[in-house]
Amino acid sequence: MLELQNLSKYFGGVRAVDSLSLKIEPGQIFGLIGPNGSGKSTTVNLITGLLGVTNGSIRLSGEEITRLPTHVRLSSGIARTFQNIRLFGQLTVWQNLWVAENSRAQRERTSFLARWLGGESGARARITKALEFSGLSHKANELAANLAFGEQRRLELARAMAAEPKLLLLDEPAAGMNAEEIGALDERIRQIRDSGITVLLIEHHMELIMAIADRIAVLNFGQKIAEGTPAEVQANPAVREAYLGTAETSTRGTA
């Protein structure tokens, strides 16, 4: 589905992402973890094209997308959510989804007038479905800015889903959520995968990612230090070192 080859991004002398190669198979939940500043969000921004790559290539379903502008990538089958929620606050919940659904309509070559001016019935049905999926049906006419935090997170996910992507990038979707909300999120991400969408999940919440990821890659200082099933990654000494420090440094730290 998604293939990164020797992907690098340097900011001056800082190697935010350093020769990263990943292969995400269709239908997987692929977890990307790592300590703060390890290059996870940069990777997402490289995949979506918000940042230009220094080196390397990105392929989506075998097609080279490394040099395509953001809106082309995002309308051709990638959707994302943001670590810091970025909704259109002064638009209603419905309008937020309506905007995103446009890229689906574009892909299917819906006629210009129906797409921009008409209340196309297919779009209505899809948006209604996305609202039900995220439990926001009763808030459809509310301004997005007036929603509670958890609802805003759900709306952002619904907005990404409204585009009917092949690949969904989730940048820390559980940040700021309580245990109950994380439980619901866990369920929702599984449902998304079961509907045939590949998920790249960036998360700090280990319990969540270990529970639902099919495969995990670990980043540290922009480099991939481990990759495998959740069990393999948890057993990997390099990962323990990256997260906890080595035995020596941690004793030195506490002394």
Partner: peptide, 15 residues
């Protein structure tokens, strides 16, 4: 309006 509110989010919605 979406573009007026947040250009990055708008681009990320394929606009």
């Amino acid at each position: 309006r979406a573009v007026g509110e947040d250009e990055i989010a708008a681009q990320s919605c394929g606009i």
